[in-house]
């Protein structure tokens, strides 16, 4: 590993830089959204824009995605898509089993709701209260069913030379 030659090409480097810039912009947008949400939370009646910047400066901590273990919008430790509600899902849905049981399943909102009801009736899952619709929206959005038909084609084939 003492070789100093870059492993990735200049094209890849350029692409990487583009992605990086894009993600930085996305972060800004995300921070923006957080600001708006936080603002609305604290000032449901609305407020004049003059104070919005102050709110941004004082209320929103700087988020470092890598320290949070977030790569490409995925929280690496749990595999959850990082989007509104994901932290509620992490908090409520990884207490008994690992997140893998959640992320490998697919269902529409009603399907997720029926799984939650089953866990509440038989597996000691608690009442999710006002978080339930947020959790359901999140699950239905990111872990929605995909059509497979009666039989899907073979995928993920790892081709290899058959030995004689």
């Amino acid at each position: 590993m003492s070789d100093d030659k870059p492993i990735i090409s200049p094209e890849q480097r350029a692409a990487y830089d583009r992605v990086n810039t894009m993600l930085n912009r996305l972060t800004l947008v995300a921070v923006g959204i957080v600001v708006v949400v936080v603002t609305l939370m604290f000032f449901p009646q609305g407020l004049d824009l003059g104070t919005a910047d102050q709110v941004a400066a004082t209320e929103v901590p700087e988020v470092d995605p890598l320290e949070e273990g977030i790569v490409d919008g995925i929280h690496v430790e749990t595999g959850f898509v990082v989007d509104e509600g994901w932290e509620l899902v992490r908090a409520n849905c990884t207490a008994c089993h690992s997140s893998k049981l959640v992320t490998q399943n697919r269902a529409d909102r009603a399907g997720w709701e029926s799984m939650i009801r089953w866990m509440q009736e038989t597996q000691k899952l608690w009442d999710l209260g006002e978080n339930e619709p947020i959790i359901l929206d999140y699950l239905a959005k990111h872990y929605a069913p995909q059509r497979k038909g009666r039989r899907a084609r073979l995928t993920h084939i790892e081709w290899y030379e058959l030995e004689p």
Binding site: D3, P65, V71, D72
Partner: peptide
Amino acid sequence: RTGLSAMAAVLGGPIVFAEH
């Protein structure tokens, strides 16, 4: 920079926010 690209190669993609 080598460290970053080597790590990126192992991970199969660029590392975002490497400076942090």
